[in-house]
Every structure is written in C-alpha cells, then in structure tokens.
Amino acid sequence: MFRAALVDPQIARASRGLWGDAARRLRRNRPALVGLFCIVLFALAAILAPVISPFDPYAMNGSSLDAPSLTHLFGTDLLGRDIFSRVLYGAQISLFVGVGAVVLALVIGGVLGAIAGGFGGRIDGVIMRATDVFLSIPSILLAIGIVTALGRGMVQLMFAIAVSYAPTFARLLRGSLLALREADYVVAARTIGASRMRILVRHMLPNALTPLIVQATLVLATAIIDIAGLGFLGLGPADPRTPEWGTMLVDARRFMQTAPHIVVFIGGAIVISAIGFNLLGDGLRESLDPKLKR
C-alpha cells in the first residue's frame, strides 16, 4: 500500500496533465468541434425523439409518398408514415445499438487484451490466434453469421457488431500494454515488489486506455454504418416496421425514381452522424498525441 503510493500520485499527475492538455488542444481543433456538433445533434435527435417528433413513427399520418412539406418536413413513406419522425426515432435505435455494441466490444476486447498483454505467454498466444480468426472474416459477414445464428433482434444486432469489433480492441490494448511493460514507472513499481495484478490495474491500464478511447470513437462511426448495412440486408430489428435507418432504406430504394428525397434524408442522417464520430475521433487522436499534430 504505502510503497505503491510512492509511485501513484506521479501517474495521476501525468495523466491529468495529459487530459488537460488534450482538452485544451481539442478546443482549438475546428474539425473536432464540428464533429462534436454533429454528435450533439445526433444525440439530441435520439434522446428527444419522443418530445420533438411531430408524429407517431408507426402510424399512418398522411397519404402515401408525400413530398416534403411544412407538415411532413421529410415527406411520408409508402404507408403514409412521417419520415422526419421516423428518422428521429431511427437515431435513437442507432445510438442505442451503436453505443451498446461499442461498449460491449470494449468490455470483451478490453478483458481479452488485458489478459493477453498483462500476462503474456501461452494465454497471449491463444487470444491472439483467436483474434486472427475473427479478423480474417469480413466484419459484415461475421455480423451476418451471428445474426442468422442467433435470430433477428436489437440485442442480437448489438452483440453481432460487438463481436466483430472486439478483436481490434483486444489487439490495441495488448499492444499498448506490451509497450508499457518497459515504461520506467512500471519497472519501478515492479522493483518495489508491487503485485502483477496491481501493476496491471493501477499502473498500466489507465495509461493504455488512451488509444482505446480514440478507437472507440472512430468505431462508433463504423457501427452506425454497419447497423444500417445489416438493416438494409433485412437483418435489422425483428419487427420490420421499426424505424431503423437501414431497414427504412430497403423501402426507400423501391421508390428511388419517384421519391429520391427519402434516400437523401435517411442517408444524410447516417452520413452526418458517422462524420461526427470520425471527426471527433481524429481530433481526439491528434489532441492526445501531440506528435501527430502538424
């Protein structure tokens, strides 16, 4: 206890300094702020969907395939449902499934990566070969495999996406942990006899998290795109009436010639949220690693 405390405050200071500096740099990074704005827009749409939606996303509120108007900002779909309301509720689903999947992937990948990088040896070899297996399968096919095996549904979708990202997180964390094994303060902690577990949890993990956070932000963009992709392939939520963006695009596609605006609105929503996470992720990476900044 006492001995480890000699080392700890230093790390705490170092990491607070890192994040403080990063926050300052981030505030000056225009693209990252634009990204943050997109994300806030996306999150507000998702959270406030029940409040700001003018119509019930499941109910028929107009005639079929109305053009955009003041009543129906984005027009209506084949069944006369308000597309604006459906896009808002779609944000809710993407946010919920996307964040859920990435958090789950972080947990699975984090645990595996921590074991592999923290302990090394044979267990490391086994985990790394396992990630090789998963990484050899194109991620959308892996997700397809999982959803077809488990059946359609939001939770299955979340799980499928999480499994396809977890290996990347595992490798990333393992890589940083291996690099940190030789860091001065870790060696110092080891020489004063701190336990392996303690070194891993108190000294190495906090410092290895940075690249993981950056990657998680970037992967959120991919997650939103992949969720829509699975929906587009008919592997979205179990109920096909659910206002999931990809599922909605299946219908929209059929009327692309007569009502192309539907594709534009739904596609636009996907692109804006993905751009948001990509910009913020890049900005975070630059702010956390000043060397990258040119």
């Binding site: 192309p260 534009v264 596609g267 996907i270 990509n278």
Partner: peptide, 22 residues
Amino acid sequence: SLFGVSIPVFVLGLALVVIFGV
C-alpha cells in the same frame, strides 16, 4: 476522404444510381 469513410456503401450506391442512372 472523411466523406468516403463516413458514407455507407449502399447509400453511396443508391445516390450514384439516382444521379448517374436515373
């Protein structure tokens, strides 16, 4: 390139179909 990684293949595909095809 930011746009390229942020637009789903099928959304871009549909957009190309509408613009260059339709």
